[in-house]
Design a protein around this nucleic acid. Structure first.
Length: 357
DNA sequence: AATACAGACAACCGCCACTAA
DNA sequence: ATTAGTGGCGGTTGTCTGTAT
C-alpha cells in the first residue's frame, strides 16, 4: 500500500496568499522547519494544500530569495545557461543564487524571449530563426540567384521578410565561401562545455546549408542577362528586392574571389554569424564586434554584444555612435535603450522586424 | 474619465521519478 | 514486487498593474 494522501483538497483555500497566511507559514517554518509538507499546513493551521505551501515558501517566502529586477549579468547568465540547458529552469536557478526557477522562467518568457525574437534569434535554439533561414535557403536553392524568381515571390512573401532573408542569404554565401555556415559549431568545438555531446545534441545544426556552389561570387541571373557578379553589396542590404533591377548589376570582379569587406556598408552585420560564447569560455570579448571577418570566423557573438553593452568603448564605429556608457550599475532602461540601438544597428535600419516577429 | 490592451508575475495544473508502505 | 503518495519540475493560467487610446 502507498502512503496516505498528502491532503484532502476539499475545503482548502486557493489563490493568492494573504499576508496573514504568509506570516503563519514563515512563523511555523522558522520554528519547526519544513520537513513534511503534507502535514505542515495542518500543523501550522493553514487551510492550504501542502504543495501550495511548499510553492509559496520556495518561490516567495524563502529568506534567501533575491527580489527585484534581474541584473544585466544575471540576464546574460540566464541566456547562456539556457542555450546549454534549455528549459531546465531548476538547473539554471541552481546557478543563480537567490533566484527561483519560477522567477527565471517568468523572466525568460516575459523579457528575454521577446528580446531574442526582436533580434531575429530563435529563443529555443539560440540561432537565427529558422523561418528566415529557410527563406534564405530558398533564395540560395539554385546555383545562381534568380532574381526574376524573387520578383515573383514578393507577391507571396512580405517583402521586408524577403529583404532580411536576402541578407541572410548573402551572408550565408560568404559562409559557404569559407565552408563555415554556423559559428555555433565552431564555438561548440572550441569550448569545453559545448564540446559535451549532450550539449551539442541540444544545439544541432539548424540549417542544412545550401551546397556550396561552384561560383564563389554571387551572381544574378536572369533569362535575359548572363551571369554577372554583384559587386555592389548594397543591393542586398538596402534595396527592396522587389525593385531589384538586374541591369544595375556591375561587372566588377572581386579579386581572388574574395569579398571586399570595404565594399560593405558600414552598418552591415551578418546575422547568420550570430553565436554565443559559452558561459564558461575564457575568451576575451572581441575588440571589434562590427568587423566581419572574411575568414568566416566572425567575431560577432551575443556575448560580444553584451560585453560591448557593458563596455561599449571597446567597440568602434557604429557602437560608438551610442553615447550611453553602460556599466553593471546602469539602469535597466539604459541597458534596454542601448540594446535597442544595437538592434537598430543590426536590423532595424533595414526593415521592421516586428512585422514578422 | 473610461475602456482596452499589454506586461509582469504569482499561483495552479499535470506529469514524472522516487520511494515509503 | 507492487502500489500510490510525495516532492520536484515545466507549462500554463489568472490576476493585478501600468499604459495607451
Amino acid at each position: 500500500m502507498g502512503r496516505a494522501p498528502c491532503c484532502d483538497k476539499s475545503g482548502l483555500k486557493k489563490g493568492p496568499w494573504t499576508p496573514e497566511e504568509d506570516h503563519i507559514l514563515i512563523d511555523y517554518i522558522q520554528k519547526n522547519g519544513y520537513g513534511n509538507w503534507r502535514t505542515l499546513p495542518k500543523n501550522a493551521g493553514l487551510q492550504r494544500c501542502g504543495k501550495s505551501c511548499r510553492l509559496r515558501w520556495t518561490n516567495y517566502l524563502r529568506p534567501d530569495i533575491k527580489r527585484g529586477r534581474f541584473s544585466f549579468e544575471e540576464e546574460e547568465t540566464i541566456i547562456q545557461l539556457h542555450s546549454m540547458l534549455g528549459n531546465k529552469w531548476s538547473a539554471i536557478a541552481a546557478r543563480l543564487p537567490g533566484r527561483t526557477d519560477n522567477e527565471i522562467k517568468n523572466y525568460w518568457n516575459t523579457h528575454i524571449r521577446k528580446k531574442l525574437l526582436r533580434m531575429g534569434i530563435d529563443p529555443v535554439t539560440h540561432t537565427p530563426r529558422l523561418d528566415l533561414l529557410h527563406l534564405s535557403a530558398i533564395l540560395n536553392s539554385s546555383s545562381q540567384m534568380n532574381f526574376s524568381r524573387l520578383v515573383g515571390m514578393h507577391n507571396l512573401v512580405n517583402p521586408q521578410l524577403l529583404r532580411l532573408a536576402n541578407l541572410l542569404s548573402s551572408t550565408q554565401f560568404q559562409n559557404q565561401n569559407q565552408n563555415q555556415y554556423l559559428m555555433l559549431q565552431n564555438n561548440a568545438q572550441d569550448n569545453q562545455i559545448c564540446s559535451n555531446s549532450q550539449l551539442q545534441n541540444h544545439m544541432p545544426p539548424l540549417v542544412q546549408p545550401c551546397q556550396p556552389q561552384n561560383q564563389d561570387i554571387p551572381t544574378c541571373t536572369t533569362l535575359e542577362t548572363p551571369n554577372v557578379p554583384i559587386s555592389n553589396i548594397d543591393h542586398f542590404r538596402t534595396s527592396d528586392v522587389t525593385n531589384f533591377n538586374p541591369q544595375n548589376c556591375q561587372l566588377n570582379d572581386w579579386p581572388n574571389n574574395q569579398i571586399d569587406l570595404t565594399s560593405f556598408p558600414e552598418d552591415y552585420v551578418p546575422l547568420s554569424n550570430y553565436g554565443y560564447d559559452c558561459v564558461y569560455g575564457s575568451d576575451p570579448p572581441p575588440s571589434d564586434t562590427s568587423t566581419f571577418q572574411s575568414n568566416g570566423s566572425s567575431n560577432f557573438s551575443f556575448r560580444s554584444v553584451l560585453s560591448n553593452m557593458s563596455s561599449p568603448s571597446s567597440s568602434p564605429t557604429p557602437l560608438h555612435s551610442n553615447s550611453i556608457k553602460l556599466t553593471s550599475n546602469s539602469t535597466e532602461e539604459e541597458k534596454e535603450s542601448y540594446c535597442s540601438n544595437l538592434l537598430k544597428f543590426n536590423i532595424q535600419d533595414m526593415l521592421d522586424v516586428n512585422e514578422f516577429v
